[in-house]
């Protein structure tokens, strides 16, 4: 088992988001999480991504228990084992496409130029490496974000509505590319989406509703 989410609860102030949620992921598995707006999908993704801490319960990724980690340890875990893709891409505006693509891999100290070049080629970004993010279209920016997350060869790729900001054609293309690359790299994928169509393309589908995962 790669990921173990065990009896995790989270609330903001007095408002509970979800309670006692448990789930697990195997290496290379692709899982989609759907749910209503405000159901806590993104919050759960943030907890799994070690971006936030649960109120109760624990999460374990590749044998590392989050509750034993401090701020620095969580940062290291994100840097080395997790790839993150956000709906708004969140590229580093000050760096060009090439530097954005390799950023996390270099941060983790394991850049593989051949793999990065392969990703760039597969994402059709090889001619845009010197461009700044602001000069790219939304679809292109999201491809850079996917490439950045995969270049580090993470154990787990977390994607929060990765196609939510794209039109249908772009959405299909980006999703296909992401699934291909995930399969090629053996990375597990945990994807949050509103779309049942997107969810249907992944190997497992979870639904978060009224604080419970089914």
């Amino acid at each position: 088992m790669l990921l173990d989410v065990s009896s995790v609860s989270k609330s903001y102030g007095k408002r509970p988001v979800f309670q006692d949620v448990s789930l697990s992921l195997d290496p290379g598995e692709t899982v989609a999480l759907t749910g209503e707006s405000g159901s806590g999908k993104s919050t759960l993704l943030h907890l799994i991504g070690a971006l936030d801490a649960p109120d109760t319960g624990d999460i374990t990724l590749a044998g590392t228990r989050y509750s034993t980690l401090g701020d620095r340890g969580r940062a290291g875990l994100r840097r080395n084992r997790i790839g993150l893709i956000f709906q708004q891409f969140n590229l580093i505006a000050a760096l060009n496409v090439g530097a954005n693509l390799s950023f996390q891999a270099r941060l983790a100290g394991r850049e593989d130029p051949g793999w990065t070049a392969e990703i760039a080629r597969r994402l059709d970004l090889q001619d845009r490496l010197e461009q700044m993010p602001e000069t790219l279209s939304g679809g292109q920016q999201q491809r850079v974000a996917i490439g950045r997350a995969l270049a580090v060869r993470p154990d787990l790729l977390l994607a929060d509505e990765p196609t939510g900001n794209l039109d249908e054609a772009n959405s299909d293309a980006v999703l296909s590319l992401m699934l291909d690359l995930v399969a090629q790299s053996g990375t597990a994928l945990f994807l949050v989406t509103h779309s049942a169509q997107v969810a249907a393309r992944l190997s497992r589908h979870l639904h978060l509703s009224q604080g419970q995962v089914t």
Binding site: R72, N90, L107
Partner: peptide
């Protein structure tokens, strides 16, 4: 913040 948050998410601690 929008500049720092992605770097933080990608593995740079707040202290750093």
């Amino acid at each position: 913040l929008p500049q720092l948050a992605p770097a933080w998410a990608l593995g740079l601690s707040r202290r750093r």
